[in-house]
């Protein structure tokens, strides 16, 4: 299935302000007092999808998170030596523990595919960009390897390739001097559309489980939106207002 995509507006904040201004219906209820009614909420449902993941940490063991990482490595052909701070890291395992109860929890951490991505704001060449369907990518053809985006990302989701590579996989071009991160398995999404299953989700959703759900956050009938409506989901560092497309349950 081919997704219809639109050009991304380079200055979303300004555009939203202008749209918001247009969408406000004002009524004069008293001299100097205006009642504003915003129709913004009805406009958020658009034709364009916004792909996201719902990660249910209640359903995931430490081994499941490891399986996610392994699946991502196999899918995209990256490796990471233990203890190395400079190796590729598209996805990593994060452990949380409560010292009082001793409760431990593990979650996969990767690019959160923000609606307002700081990595895109800081990129001097426009290499770091957000596709019309919400996937945040690096256009390695114009990335100069300055690594501003790595510093801007609050999730530490990006890594830099320091050494020349060979034998890359056809679906995942990677090369020295450029920054890379989770692509939400964009090659699968472009091929399968809403039926796509990212490699990490495929690895943990064995045997009828659905610990990681992929879907369109703009489609009210999609599985991911239904589950979010029923059980809610946490945006990591929601206080920063980045509105990530990855949502976690059980944190």
């Amino acid at each position: 299935m081919k997704t219809e995509l639109e050009r991304v507006e380079p200055r979303p904040a300004r555009r939203r302000f202008l749209q918001g201004a247009a969408a406000l219906a004002s009524t004069l209820i008293a001299p100097g007092v205006l009642l504003y009614i915003s129709s913004h909420a009805t406009e958020t449902a658009t034709k364009s999808p916004r792909w996201g993941l719902l990660i249910d940490t209640n359903a995931m063991s430490e081994a499941d998170v490891d399986a996610c990482v392994q699946a991502c490595k196999r899918e995209h052909g990256w490796q990471s030596r233990a203890g190395s701070k400079t190796d590729a890291q598209w996805i990593r395992k994060v452990g949380l523990s409560d010292p009082q109860s001793g409760h431990r929890r593990f979650l996969p951490m990767m690019c959160q595919h923000c609606e307002n991505p700081p990595c895109v704001d800081v990129c001097p060449t426009g290499a770091s960009f957000k596709r019309a369907d919400g996937i945040v990518l690096v256009n390695r053809h114009i990335c100069i390897g300055c690594r501003y985006c790595m510093m801007a990302c609050p999730y530490k989701a990006r890594s830099f390739i320091h050494e020349p590579l060979q034998d890359q996989l056809p679906v995942a071009p990677r090369g020295k001097g450029t920054v890379e991160s989770c692509t939400l398995c964009v090659h699968r999404i472009d091929r399968d559309g809403a039926d796509a299953v990212p490699a990490c989700a495929e690895a943990v959703n064995q045997g009828g489980r659905s610990a990681i759900v992929f879907g369109d956050l703009n489609d009210s009938d999609s599985e991911i939106v239904k589950r979010l409506r029923k059980h809610g989901g946490t945006k990591l560092r929601a206080d920063m207002g980045l509105n990530p497309a990855l949502r976690y349950q059980g944190l």
Binding site: D133, R140, H187, D190
Partner: peptide
């Protein structure tokens, strides 16, 4: 093709480098 693929996700074109290889 490289821009169409990276920016707009067009991967089934006959001019893909993967297709060449």
């Amino acid at each position: 093709q490289r821009d169409a693929t990276v920016l707009e996700g067009e991967r089934d074109s006959k001019y893909s480098l993967t297709g060449c290889m």
